[in-house]
């Protein structure tokens, strides 16, 4: 499977990474190199194998559940302290038109 330049542009767009036209070819070569190498996985027989999701070494443990209590929040200044554009107590972005 080899990625064409249209696919490279589509992936960059999905990932929201601006890709200059001049860089498409280089990115295409690099990704195809990596994907070509990854391709060897197709040869592994995985019939009947349950996929391993998560990193737990001894099978998946059940999720722990916390009690329903308000233990966080109430810190708008800290939440907004790193904002590139803060307007009053909001984060601001260029106007979104829908």
């Amino acid at each position: 499977m080899s990625l064409d330049s249209a696919t490279i542009r589509r992936i960059a767009s999905l990932a929201r990474i601006r890709l200059e036209e001049a860089d498409v070819g280089r990115m295409q070569n690099e990704l195809n190199g990596i994907l070509g190498w990854i391709e060897q996985l197709q040869a592994v027989n995985t019939d009947g194998v349950e996929p391993m999701a998560g990193g737990a070494p001894r099978g998946e443990p059940a999720m722990r559940q916390r009690p329903d209590a308000v233990t966080d929040g109430g810190q708008p200044d800290q939440v907004l302290a790193n904002a590139p554009d803060r307007a009053h107590d909001y984060f601001a972005v260029p106007k979104v038109v829908e």
Binding site: M1, L41, Q42, V44, T46, V49, E50, P51, M52
Partner: peptide, 12 residues
């Protein structure tokens, strides 16, 4: 083809 396959190989 990729992600699910890799998770299965990971299980192996």
């Amino acid at each position: 083809a990729y992600y699910l396959k890799a998770q299965k190989v990971r299980a192996l």
